[in-house]
Design a protein around this nucleic acid. Structure first.
Lengths: 148, 148
DNA sequence: CTTGACCTTAGATTAAACTCCAAGGTTTAT
DNA sequence: ATAAACCTTGGAGTTTAATCTAAGGTCAAG
């Protein structure tokens, strides 16, 4: 049996995080000591590791709650259900990825167009792109024009 | 002069959003009518478009506040300052992108390993990967073994 | 027998960007 | 003159995943 601080240290999380997981139904200590301290079993430890692994692949705590309820009652769920969760997460991740790629391209273009020098920003092509219509944000025409 | 609902409609945002921007110092109406209605000028409209464009390239409202303060006082800032903001945003976006690519790879591998069929999840390779050590989450070995 | 490290609870706070609500005043059209 | 559509304010709620605080109880060592 581990006390909260022990389990936390084993898994590199804080005791607060474990209390938070308990409050949100992800992981409750299997027992309490006479004085009310949480006592965690090896099974609790495994459950925590499941949670942390699911986090490393991008699931939110709510999604992990669903995964855990399947995990505890596997025979009443189909592979299709589990794969469905993974695939819908994958779709979410890919949507976010597409957005970030758009950001990345726009920012890279803005960055390239700007001289980045100590000259006044009065003719900064980044600011000019943000001032003009949004097509221009994605296709900066001219570098900063600093009169010599 | 536009009333809040007019400007909102022009820029495809909600009046609430404009009030929110005002409260957070991004955009205040230049005037008020006798009865207290917000009245926005063409300059306000341009400022709003600046904000919305900056959002499309990934800046947060706090970052946009910085950009706006430079925009209003260009001559006291250098291109280097502006490019610095863009480059640091770009670095953030790329870091997040790298994380999402890791998620995407792990999820795609999990998805591939699972048969996705109507069989019981008792031998689901996704759940098995989450139960075992994290190295395995990133390299699922076996497809779901459903005994025939 | 007291110090320090640990544990308990409930509740507040953080970041981000809105969105919604209530209770009321204004404008416009019929 | 009244209904519909619009506006005002302040404040609460949403989402995510903790993190922090206060006020206090417990345990092991010296």
């Amino acid at each position: 049996m581990y006390r909260i601080g022990e389990l936390a240290q084993l898994c590199d999380v804080k005791p607060d995080t474990l209390r938070f997981y308990e409050k949100h139904g992800l992981l409750a200590a299997s027992a309490r000591s006479d004085s009310g301290y949480r006592l965690y079993t090896t099974a609790d430890f495994e459950r925590l590791k499941f949670i942390l692994r699911a986090k490393t692949v991008g699931f939110t705590l709510n999604e992990i709650t669903e995964l855990l309820s399947i995990e505890l009652d596997k025979s009443n769920w189909a592979c299709a259900d589990v794969k469905g969760l993974v695939d819908s997460k994958l779709a979410q991740v890919e949507a976010k990825l597409a957005e970030l790629v758009r950001f990345q391209k726009s920012l890279a273009q803005l960055s390239q167009a700007c001289c980045g020098g100590p000259e006044s920003a009065e003719h900064c092509s980044i600011l000019e792109a943000l001032e003009s219509n949004s097509a221009t944000v994605n296709a900066v025409k001219e570098p900063c024009r600093h009169s010599k």
